[in-house]
Nucleic acid binder design. Structure first.
Lengths: 240, 240
DNA sequence: AGGCGTCTGTTCGCTAGCGAACACAGTGGG
DNA sequence: CCCACTGTGTTCGCTAGCGAACAGACGCCT
């Protein structure tokens, strides 16, 4: 389990026993995921799964009227395309690149082949899926009960956990789409955080200055997802 | 795949190939699930899974301050306790009986044993899990964007699909807990539906008079979940 | 029959978030 | 170097939903 950043690390891949990973390796192809790229649309038959290394992908649902809401986030701790092995082949969500970067791409069939060997890969994928489920459930709760202020904190922390460094490139407009709220609401919330000295904001560039404070201002949802993910996937490095 | 109602039908069990079901049968025990019974609490190590026949179980998250929100619903189309085979053994949700009835109970270990044979059961469970995921994702969206009126319609339809007949026993207080809103909000919404002649309400007893109208008044979320479930689990009978 | 507890309906003021509109400031391309 | 565009800040009125408090109504139990 090397932590060489240059090699592009995905922790799910890294957690596989060597023989399994070596079987997959020849079929892994590194691809660039530019900001805004749609990896799949609702109903698309998935041909590949993606293991992000330094990219972040959001799964979001787009309503008939065009409004959207993020369901969950995937970074180097996971993979995009669980429908491939869950059996549905497609989902009702859209997967969009939220932060540009690289990912390992694997043909769905290769994953299924390995899946059918019923080894460590299956167990790992299922556990990962359960952690995704936790994230979705918590998103539902958060959408119901928490203020935009709190949700912004949660969202920043989720993103931060999937990046190196303490900066993220993300306009308020984009964040608003993810959270499913108005851009003005995000401007408000971000303004408050900036005045508190928790973040520094400037034209699509956010620097987090005080992570502990951010965690305090966030709703409980972040901590729930984090600790549950940690429980399910203990091999994941934990940022603080 | 008998449809004898007296025998207590769970469609997930019914969809299993005969040999698989016959292996499970000796370990299935019919249990009564009274209204309000808590099947498991967050963090509980699950010992059994439950296949409801005429009971309905809600998975809901209870926040630190006691407020709650429903994550998804399970009736005779599914099972309670996916964490058993997903590998986490527990979840961060609570499972509560929303409508009293019977269920088949199976020791978790028996399910895992069968799971490890990597046959039809595994595939079916994964597909069912994906349909649950769809429901959760849609709940998140719905919580963000739709009015209590619309959500009540969605919720009534989800419950109706899991019951026989067109009546449900459910106080407004209870519904409010599920939706994560105030009881007064539900009173309002239910009052409107009653004035429209869509439902008849009286002290915890609801009769649905005009299902098509209910579907029209509901947000798109119900239809999305329904059609996706149908796609993933085509053996399920479809109510109209 | 009486009484009590549960369920439903209604009120009031309040706030968060919405929709629309507009002003201003960086920034990058011609 | 200037212009156009993109990103951010701010305003106004409006509505949905909240919190609290209370009134009636039904039904069960004694």
């Amino acid at each position: 389990m090397s932590h060489d950043p240059a090699s592009g690390q995905n922790h799910l891949l890294a957690a596989l026993p060597d023989p399994v990973r070596e079987r997959l390796l020849p079929h892994l192809e590194q691809v660039a995921l530019p900001l805004g790229k749609v990896i799949y649309e609702p109903g698309d038959r998935l041909t590949h799964v993606y293991f992000p290394t330094d990219a972040i992908v959001s799964l979001l649902y787009v309503m008939e009227n065009g409004a959207s809401a993020e369901i969950c986030v995937v970074g180097n701790e996971g993979l995009v395309g669980i429908a491939v092995f869950m059996g549905g082949e497609s989902t009702s969500n859209r997967a969009v690149v939220q932060s540009a970067g690289l990912a390992w791409r694997l043909p769905g069939q290769r994953l299924k082949d390995e899946f059918d060997r019923h080894g460590e890969l299956l167990l790992l994928m299922l556990r990962y899926t359960q952690s995704l489920i936790t994230q979705m459930a918590q998103t539902a709760v958060c959408n119901r009960h928490h203020s935009i202020d709190q949700q912004l904190c949660r969202w920043l922390l989720l993103s931060l956990d999937r990046l190196t460094g303490n900066e993220l490139n993300m306009t308020q407009e984009l964040i608003a789409n993810m959270l499913g709220v108005r851009r003005e609401g995000v401007t408000d919330a971000a303004g408050k955080l900036q005045r508190l000295g928790v973040i520094e904001y400037s034209r699509g560039h956010i620097k987090v200055l005080d992570r502990p404070q951010l965690e305090r201002l966030s709703c409980e949802c972040y901590a729930v997802v984090r600790s549950e993910t940690q429980r399910l996937l203990p091999y994941l490095p934990l940022r603080t």
